[in-house]
């Protein structure tokens, strides 16, 4: 199993690690039983992701996808950020080994959870849909979460 240079770069030198104090939205997803948990905190400005940080307990892929999703989401509108798919995350990392594709779901789910947390806290409707990866029975080898067109 080989990782791309970009996966290794984001694993070795993860961007935006940490927790934003007084964050506008927080998303914590995953399950320690399965070995991966991710927490994303965001600052929101004009319905855009103004700042974003993550903490991840997990494998190399979980850390690399967490790192890249924070880079991808920064500056995006909330609507665009929640629609980032795990495939887009994998593509941005120049691909993931097939057996590791499921590890990237955590990153997109963490982001979705943080955005919904912000919206709900501000009395607005959540837009991300169900967060599957926190469900203990969730099968990460299941269907791809392509955006519904």
């Amino acid at each position: 199993m080989l990782y791309s240079d970009k996966v290794m770069d984001h694993f070795q030198n993860p961007r935006n690690v940490g927790v934003i104090e007084n964050a506008d939205g927080t998303g914590e997803v995953g399950n320690p039983i399965r070995g991966d948990v991710m927490k994303i905190t965001i600052k929101v400005e004009d319905d855009k992701v103004d700042d974003i940080m993550f903490q991840t307990l997990g494998c190399g892929t979980a850390i690399a996808t967490s790192s890249i999703v924070t880079e991808m989401a920064k500056g995006m509108t909330l609507e665009d950020a929640v629609s980032i798919t795990k495939k887009q995350v994998a593509d941005e990392l120049d691909g993931l080994p097939p057996a590791k594709m499921h590890c990237s779901v955590l990153a997109t789910d963490g982001l979705k959870a943080a955005i919904d947390d912000y919206l709900v806290k501000n009395g607005r409707e959540p837009i991300a849909g169900p967060i599957l990866s926190s469900d203990p029975d969730f099968d990460p080898h299941g269907e791809e979460d392509e955006p519904a067109e």
């Binding site: 290794m8 694993f11 070795q12 070995g35 991966d36 307990l57 997990g58 494998c59 190399g60 590890c103």
Partner: peptide, 24 residues
């Protein structure tokens, strides 16, 4: 509080070969 594969990859970057029982 750590995941084995992540440990293994960092050790590998230092030239160290070990193994882990983690799922990933």
């Amino acid at each position: 509080g750590v995941e084995g594969e992540a440990m293994l990859l960092h050790l590998d970057a230092k030239g160290i070969a070990v193994s882990t029982g983690s799922a990933c």
